[in-house]
Design a protein around this nucleic acid. Structure first.
Length: 296
DNA sequence: TTGCAGGGGTCAA
DNA sequence: TTGACCCCTGCA
């Protein structure tokens, strides 16, 4: 069947959906570009993730992208938006293609898409990401989900949904410490409580301009400029942000600024240079820089 | 085997 | 503006 320009079909025997004419969609680019922590690469090259109480397996074979463990209705109601399929990434690429550096970065990460992820999950996950490595972040988020999240069975394996923010807010500091999140435990606990008490939600932040939304997030404990940008971008709330971490600093210094530059200055340069779509530009640059170890 | 540096930042002095 | 911070990994 046709759905919003896509050729979507239900897989006959096992529950799943296949799209045969998808563009700008490469699972490894999407799941390994640093925006998410709960998609695991399987031995067959597919990825399995837990999102909002659902387990999904995604693979690409030639031009076909296969979504296992879903159906047409759920795909249309939920996954379509999660994978940002309503957005024309070919157009996004044109808009961020300001120079030859971006041409290389965009060519390299041509299948990147920005996922629209749960706001509370992004908030907690990126607080955990501070001064931490991706494998560790993934382990801690998994531990947290095992401790407070709902169990889900899929393919003979047990998965755990990311916890409700209230479950984290009600936790003991000692419980959170057991997830091995270290000094970030007090930040996670405080911010979960504050997010609930101050009613900081996706819809509230969406109504604010980007600067105001960022300021609101930065009132939370353990949330500075970089993490606020990440939360806004990866929840799909704001796209005119330019999360500036050490890899973005390295690539920007190496390719654009040609000298040692402060994080704030780089952040300002990025948002000015790329404007409304700086968040997309940041993802292409980040993926390119980290995979190629530019400036390391 | 043991020891030490450092990581996709933030906070407090 | 600078160092401490949990914990884990990689590498002497």
């Amino acid at each position: 069947m046709k759905y919003k320009g896509y050729d979507i079909d239900e897989l006959p025997d096992r529950g799943g959906v296949v799209i045969s004419n998808i563009r700008d969609f490469e699972p490894s680019h999407i799941f390994d570009c640093g925006q998410c922590f709960r998609w695991i690469r399987e031995s067959d090259g597919s990825y399995t993730g837990v999102v909002s109480g659902k387990v999904l397996n995604v693979s690409k074979k030639g031009l076909y992208v296969i979504f296992n463990n879903t159906n047409i209705k759920e795909f249309q109601d939920f996954w379509f938006d999660y994978f940002d399929l309503g957005r024309d990434y070919s157009r996004i690429k044109e808009l961020v293609l300001k120079d030859n550096h971006m041409k290389e970065a965009v060519t390299y990460g041509h299948g990147i898409r920005l996922l629209k992820q749960d706001f509370n999950e992004m908030l907690v996950s990126f607080i955990i990401s501070a001064n931490n490595r991706i494998p560790m972040i993934m382990k801690v988020v998994e531990n947290l989900s095992k401790m407070f999240g709902k169990k889900i069975n899929y393919n003979g394996r047990l998965y755990f949904d990311f916890p409700e923010i209230s479950a984290i807010a009600d936790a003991q500091l000692s419980d959170l410490a057991e997830t091995r999140m270290g000094f970030r435990a007090k930040y996670v606990l405080n911010s979960s409580k504050m997010a609930i008490e101050s009613d900081i939600t996706r819809s509230k932040l969406s109504e604010m301009d980007t600067c105001k939304a960022k300021q609101h997030l930065m009132q939370l404990s353990g949330v500075g400029s970089k993490i606020a940008d990440c939360v806004l971008l990866f929840s799909g709330i704001k796209y005119d942000v330019f999360p500036t971490d050490v890899w973005v600093k390295r690539v920007m210094e190496a390719l654009y600024l040609k000298r040692e530059t402060g994080l704030n200055q780089i952040n300002e340069f990025g948002t000015n240079y790329f404007g409304e779509y700086s968040g997309f530009a940041q993802q292409y640059l980040f993926y390119y820089a980290r995979e190629k170890r530019i400036g390391a």
